[in-house]
Design a protein around this nucleic acid. Structure first.
Length: 495
RNA sequence: GCUCCCAUCGUCUAGAGGCCCAGGACACAGCCCUCUCAAGGCUGGUACGAGGGUUCGAAUCCCUCUGGGAGCGCCA
């Protein structure tokens, strides 16, 4: 990964011209009001990839202007989840940077300055309309079949009236005066050229009655102030972009490039919401999904990354191409995620798996036993909890066969297990030699030989390769389980 | 209601007028391999939303419709 704050390369136009990827300054700007869902996570990830692909950088900005709802622990959680996913940002609230602060709650002065400029230019006016009045007006317009836009009640209040109402204790919101009769355009990096007419846009609030900056303003001017060159965000902002462009133009600030990513849909095909539990990044993490699985899934969700093969995190930026991004919504499909989870487990190092399995391995005791266990069972794990019954096979005293295993045991008969026990004592714990001699002595081979042994030893008819499991469980368990199987088979056959 | 966005297998996608009676991956089904499961190998079914154009030729271009979504907030 490029070093933090490695920005010089990104700004060198000559250098950029020779690179296949553009160097973008991208940003992710979440508000810490809840857990990240997969859609946001993907937006963050794409911004990260777009930045890394061209040697640019990623800015993390926290939009915590909704002071009441933003909680400190949610912010910490957010940062942790992003890091867990493997994202790294070059500037942000925790790492600092040249455009600090990175929390909007601390950027009040910047917004005040912008408002002052707007006021000076006469592009903004105080609005005393109450939420109730606005609501009413909106409803009336809708009922009349008109677009619900600001009716213009306060557009031209005389200075005297404004002064009087302020003196009377009313505090106005500030609205941006949208220039009438104009057109505009911008080139969306994903959707292509977009046109808009200012007559379709009503005057919008730029400062709330309490003096705080509203989203359109804070978001747009922070992008400009932080040198962001590419804004990758959800499709739901496409129709908002003209307002931000108007604002930026009015302030004489640079307008970034915009790219609007299609929304992510839940399994049902409706937009992802906080309620669709399975799609929360944190929930997926708690279920045991590995970050590398998530990343491999996400690079292909709404993006043609060009390969169906497993990608290591370090190789992902090179496989990311903005122009390969889909314009239509993509659906979250857990079956597909599970596939990448399987791959992820397969590609993980032994150390990673040990950490992933955590306390579930405690009963194994020594590090050597843990390593041997992980090597033996890794092919049978999809989630950490899958290890629990396998640990039990190795560490529990007895084993309770499931229905299929019980049937297999009864089928083999008591004599089979008495023979197996006899051969075990003379094979000195050599699994191969043991099964070979059991086969010879009983005349069984293949499934007829291994299935009952597996059933007796593990209580299951499926599972990891038997040999390493047997080595891990030790001679005493093998002996007692063979005896138990003989008893079960004998008892049943007599009934 | 108005403005805007989107539309290929069940899902993710390839496809930028002939290479496509549409390819890959996941999922599903069958077979093979195998001590079982998983993996792997092979095989199979399933898609260009509808209707009009343009063209010698359209999944690809244009129009209409249909369906889905977003925006029109003192939410972000």
């Amino acid at each position: 990964m490029p070093a933090s704050g490695a920005r010089p390369v990104a700004h060198d136009p000559v250098r950029c011209a020779f690179m296949s990827h553009e160097a973008h300054i991208t940003r992710f700007a979440p508000s810490p009001t809840g857990y990240l869902h997969l859609g946001n996570a993907r937006t963050a990830f794409f911004n990260f990839l777009a930045a890394r692909a061209g040697g640019g950088c990623l800015v993390l900005r926290i939009e915590d202007t909704d002071a009441g709802r933003s909680e400190e622990h949610l912010l910490a959680q957010l940062l942790e989840d992003l890091r867990w996913l493997g994202l790294e940002w070059d500037e942000g609230p925790d790492v600092g940077g040249p455009h600090a602060p990175y929390r909007q709650s601390e950027r009040g002065e910047q917004y005040s300055a912008a408002i002052a400029t707007l006021k000076q230019k006469g592009l903004v006016y105080p609005c005393f309309c109450t939420p109730e009045e606005l609501q009413l007006s909106r409803r009336a317009q809708l009922a009349a079949g008109r677009p619900p836009r600001y009716a213009g009640t306060c557009t031209r209040l005389p200075d005297a009236e404004v002064a009087a109402r302020v003196a009377a204790g009313q505090s106005p919101a500030m609205r941006f005066r949208v220039p009438p009769g104009r057109g505009g355009e911008f080139d969306d990096r994903i959707h292509g050229p977009q046109r808009f007419a200012t007559d379709d846009i009503g005057d919008f609030v730029v400062t709330r009655a309490d003096g705080s900056a509203a989203f359109f303003l804070s978001n747009a001017i922070d992008d400009a102030a932080m040198g962001v060159t590419l804004v990758l965000r959800g499709d739901d902002h496409l129709a908002n972009t003209p307002r931000q462009i108007l604002l930026l133009e009015a302030l004489g600030l640079p307008i970034p490039r915009y790219g609007h990513l299609p929304l992510l849909l839940g399994p049902s095909g409706s937009p992802l919401s906080k309620r669709e539990g399975a799609a929360g990044l944190h929930e997926l993490r708690e279920q045991g999904y590995l970050p590398s699985a998530l990343c491999n899934y996400l690079v292909r969700l709404g993006h043609a990354c060009g390969t169906d093969d497993w990608l290591e995190a370090a190789d992902m930026p090179a496989h990311f191409h903005l122009e390969r991004t889909s314009r239509s919504a993509a659906r979250f499909d857990e079956a597909q995620l599970r596939h990448w989870q399987r791959e992820a487990v397969g590609h993980a190092s032994a150390g990673e798996l040990v950490a992933w399995l955590g306390s579930r391995l405690e009963r194994l005791g020594s590090a050597a036993r843990i390593d041997a266990f992980v090597a033996a069972v890794r092919g049978n794990l999809l989630f950490p909890d899958d290890a629990v019954p396998l640990v039990a096979i190795v560490c529990d005293d007895g084993v309770r066969p499931d229905a299929e295993a019980a049937a297999a045991i009864e089928n083999a008969g008591a004599e089979f297990f008495r023979t197996a026990a006899r051969e075990w004592s003379s094979s000195a714990g050599d699994f191969k030699a043991w099964t070979r001699s059991v086969g010879t002595a009983t005349g069984q081979k293949g499934a007829a030989l291994f299935r009952p042994l597996r059933a007796a030893l593990t209580g299951l008819t499926h599972g990891p390769e038997l040999a390493p499991l047997v080595a891990l469980m030790g001679a005493a368990r093998v002996e007692s389980r063979l005896a138990a199987a003989a008893e079960r088979a004998g008892g049943k056959s007599r009934e």
